[in-house]
Simulated scan of single mutants.
Amino acid sequence: MGKMERFSFVALVAGIIFFLFADFISWALPMFVLKDIPKKSVEDLAAEAIAKNTTAWSDFNKLARYYPESFKKLCEYTESFSGAGDVIKDCKPNEKTFAKALRIGHRWYIAEGCWNCHSQMVRPVSNETLRFGIPGVSNTVSYPSEYQNELQAPVLWGTKRIGQDLIREAAVHNIGWHVAHLYNPQSTSPGSVMPGYPWYFEETKDGKIVPNERGIALLTYIMWLGSWEVKPPKPFRVETAEK
């Protein structure tokens, strides 16, 4: 074997070793970083949002008030795909219905492939914080513990940003904007290449187009993203009587 052949063989072996090492690091390093951080269940996240009176809890209450018939259907939603459990008889905004909506919304977010075009991570490089962060909040850049929960499994960091990064979405747009955007993205974002999702809506008896039970759930999940970092003014929050 000549010198060039030996060099090519060594380079090939070295390349394979470095590739395998990089692949090992990509899953092993996060595992070691997160091993001491408890993994929160969807129920834990719902209870925490209610206890802290976050924007996600406020928005969920608004969805229940704005679309009562769809909210009732959410309580009755039993499709096995959702993994959301049985019918909820006490159909009102509470920890159980909130957790169910988050779980269903998360499943449909993944099923629709939203993660193909939207990432969920503000990286500490370039102008990431200017584009996707929230000025004035305690954590503009993403951090490990906010991913240690069931709603971030599988990991939805993403690599492409055909659309906006969504990890801080709770601070960017309100419910009305998201309802219109989900039904017809071009109505809120002219020139957008995002398709509409009319199957998450239904027509009421008086001819109005409103989110259906799956739409309520998907909106709940999207409005939950980043809500733990949003510090809204007091009037924005849900009053105790409305809980």
Rank of each mutant, 00 (worst) to 15 (best):
L225C: 12
G15V: 00
E69I: 00
D36K: 10
G176N: 14
Q148G: 07
T159Q: 14
T204S: 12
E79D: 15
A46P: 06
S80V: 08
A180I: 05
F24N: 03
N149F: 07
R168N: 15
K160T: 07
E128W: 10
P232T: 06
I216S: 01
K89F: 01
A11W: 08
D86E: 15
K243Y: 03
D86W: 01
K231F: 04
I16M: 11
G15Y: 12
Y66P: 02
V155A: 13
P135T: 03
P190T: 04
H181D: 13
H118F: 15
T78W: 14
I162P: 01
K92W: 04
E229Q: 14
D44G: 06
Y197E: 00
F32Q: 09
L74S: 03
I167V: 09
L74K: 00
A153K: 08
K72C: 05
W177D: 12
N212I: 00
P38H: 11
P233E: 03
G105N: 04
W115T: 14
Y109F: 15
N53T: 08
A46Q: 09
K35G: 00
P38K: 09
K62T: 03
L74D: 00
D90R: 08
R6C: 11
T78L: 14
R214D: 02
R131W: 06
K208P: 01
R123S: 10
H118K: 15
S192D: 11
Y147E: 06
I162M: 14
R123L: 11
D44W: 01
